[in-house]
Design a binder for these strands. Structure first.
Length: 617
RNA sequence: CGGGGCGUAGCGCAGCUUGGUAGCGCGUUUGACUGGGGGUCAAAAGGUCGUGGGUUCAAAUCCCGCCGCCCCGACCA
């Protein structure tokens, strides 16, 4: 937890603002845009928060900007508490900086590039590891200057292959990125210490934003590095699949998730003679399975990988073949781990030239070859069908274009090579899924859910400092590479994740801490100088003095219109000023999300009631 | 990158098959009535039909190119 106590609901930067609907820009609409799919995307557009400018590019209108600033304020408080200092780096960076770490290649087409009048190529920064490492090189030379943590909140650019769902995957988006620098991994001032502090800060941030989230183990991806955790908003609309063990709390991204021990054995009698079947033009397991009348769990899928470093002399084997059940997905990270070296999916043409009938490959293909390693997933390494207590029926490719085989039997088809560990291994090489044994608790099974990734923290180690030569002198006067960590939050994505999580049929329901305004005042009649308007104005002023941000719906609209819009934009508290309540010295007080019409509260109590409601939340 | 679809008023859409006067709903403006959950009536403004070419007496409509956008899929063959 942070050391300070923050005033959660009434956080800076907006304290006691008063704005009028007619003098700001809140273009609400009844109909969602035709291009929106996600509920949060529809609501943000309908409620006048965002407007699309181009694919994956959006305007943040006043309401959205206020909420973003409130999220940023929370982020700043927590980052500063965790020992960070804010700064700002440029969005444009010379492409040469990326070349130093080869990320111009690794990031590939996701990197926006532009050419200036002199023909120089500049990248629009998708992230800032290179820039900050370069900066540190110029200013840090001694271990005494470490540790240090710097962060910024800034617009990032990524030429996403397929931008989608409004702010959830944009090409231009707002991100908080932090970088830390250390002499050591562990101990005082080490990477671990800051990583843990960031971990806590992130939990605080997402809690304060009112999110239901999971912290899961993750793959580092193109950022690189060793340990890594993602913060996922638990929500079905998320793109990521996460698995968790209900007993131990272990949770991981599907890309990373381990599975518990699974029993396997190649032994089992053949179910009959091997039968070759003509299966022309049938791409994919589904189609072949339907044609053969075999279910995917009875098929073996063989995916051909190539050792990344196989250009080097003496690297053997060259080809890595991963075998999984037809209904399972190969996990490249696990293949890499099992192969003991970097792998990449084989180029189709190259693999065909090497004798693999891509699309029709079976495990048999390695028999008689010495340049292959077959890695079989335990669920595929089955001679017996445990559920039925009978020998296992397998269908697989025939290693010949347009043919598959039925009644594949491991022992009969593979022979002695099955026992040679240089050529055949059994290891977990598939994505985990719901129902798999937990890797952390015997007897427990993994559960599956979806999430929106809003935060990601990495232990980078020395990947960037070594590539770019960021070194310091340690106490022994040795030059050592600096150890780094990096920590990102998708700020604009967090905004939409909040909406995705918290809404109803009528609109958005903001938590007080990040709502654009705390209170919406709805006068029932707009008559300048009337008792009703005077009361509404006085109310706004009093709320403002209490540090509450107020929006006054001063439009001369019918009540129905105002109430509909009020629900749509999702301000936490609505105060309706009407003749009936006013006659009793009251206003009508209603929480967004509560049913009914709200309750009468005495005018002199209403400020306290609002403050209490907002600080309790 | 593959597949599918779309581009007509600020927004959502029809019209295109079978070429001939630019249409509907919402929103907007003006006026009246209204006034507690997207009101009623009346009048009005608003469109180079994405873009370039072609066919034709005539193109939103048919043909070709280009541009933009959305959805699905994708290292699983």
């Amino acid at each position: 937890m942070s050391t300070k106590t923050h005033t959660h609901s009434l956080a800076a930067p907006h304290r006691g603002d008063i704005q009028r609907w007619t003098r700001t820009f809140i273009p609400t609409s009844k109909e969602p845009p035709a291009d929106a799919e996600a509920i949060s995307h529809k609501l943000l557009v309908r409620a006048g928060y965002i407007r699309r400018v181009g694919a994956g590019i959006y305007d943040y209108l006043p309401l959205a900007w206020r909420t973003l600033q409130k999220i940023c304020a929370i982020v700043r408080e927590e980052m500063n508490d965790a020992g960070g200092s804010e700064m700002l780096m440029p969005a444009m960076e010379p492409i040469e900086l990326f070349a130093e770490t080869k990320r111009d290649v690794d990031y590939g087409d996701n990197l926006f590039k532009l050419t200036d009048r002199h023909g120089r190529i500049t990248a629009l920064a998708p992230t800032h590891e290179e820039i900050i490492t370069e900066l540190m090189k110029s200013g840090v030379s001694s271990y005494r200057q470490l540790p240090i943590t710097l962060y910024q909140i800034q617009t990032k650019f990524r030429d996403e292959f397929r931008p989608r769902s409004g702010l959830l995957r944009g090409r231009e988006f707002i991100m908080k990125d932090a970088y830390s620098f250390h002499l050591t991994l562990d101990g005082e001032g080490g990477l671990g210490e800051t990583y843990d502090a960031m971990d806590r800060a992130y939990s605080n941030i997402f809690k304060r934003c009112g999110l239901d989230f999971s912290r899961v183990e993750a793959e580092a991806g193109p950022i690189g590095g060793s340990a890594s955790h993602e913060f996922m908003v638990n929500c079905d609309a998320g793109e990521d699949i996460i698995l968790r063990c209900p007993e131990t709390g272990y949770a991981a991204n599907v890309e990373k998730c381990e599975t518990g021990e699974r029993a396997w054995s190649f032994d089992g009698e053949p179910t009959g003679d091997l039968e070759k079947v003509h299966t022309p033009n049938l791409p994919g397991i589904e189609e072949v399975g339907k044609f053969l009348k075999v279910k995917p769990p009875n098929m073996l899928k063989t995916v051909v990988f190539k050792r990344h470093d196989s250009g080097g002399a003496g690297v053997s084997p060259v080809w890595i073949l991963a075998v999984v059940r037809g209904d399972h997905d190969v996990n490249e990270g696990k293949v890499k781990a099992a192969a003991g070296g970097p792998v990449a999916l084989a180029d189709e043409a190259e693999a065909k030239a090497a004798g693999f009938s891509i699309g029709y490959v079976s495990p048999r293909v390695i028999v008689g070859r010495t340049d292959c390693l077959l890695i079989v997933d335990p669920d595929a390494a089955q001679g017996m069908d445990a559920a039925k207590g009978k020998p296992m029926f397998w269908a697989t490719g025939a290693d010949e274009k347009d043919y598959h085989v039925k009644r594949f039997n491991w022992r009969r088809e593979m022979g002695d090579v099955l026992n040679n560990q240089s050529y055949v291994k059994v290891a977990d090489v598939r994505n985990a899924m719901a129902g798999d044994p937990s890797p952390r608790a015997k007897g427990a099974t993994l559960e599956e859910g979806r999430g929106i990734e809003v935060g990601h923290i990495f232990k980078l180690g020395t990947k960037y400092s070594e590539a770019m030569g960021l070194n310091v002198l340690d106490p022994n006067q040795d030059r050592v590479p600096v150890i780094m960590g990096c920590y990102g939050i998708g700020v604009s994505r967090t905004l939409q994740a909040c909406v995705e999580m918290s809404h109803d049929d009528d609109g958005i329901i903001w938590p007080g801490a990040i709502a654009p305004f705390h209170v919406l005042i709805t006068p029932m009649k707009i008559e300048p100088g009337s008792e009703l308007m005077t009361a509404a104005e006085q109310l706004a002023t009093d709320l403002s003095h209490a540090g509450i941000d107020v929006l006054v719906d001063d439009r001369d609209e019918r009540p129905g219109v105002k109430f509909k819009d009020a629900d749509l934009i999702g301000i936490p508290i609505r105060l309706t000023v009407g003749d009936k309540a006013l006659a009793e010295g009251c206003v009508e007080y209603k929480h967004r999300g509560d049913a009914g019409k709200g309750e009468f509260v005495k005018m002199h109590d209403v400020i306290d009631t609002c403050v209490r409601a907002l600080t309790e939340a």
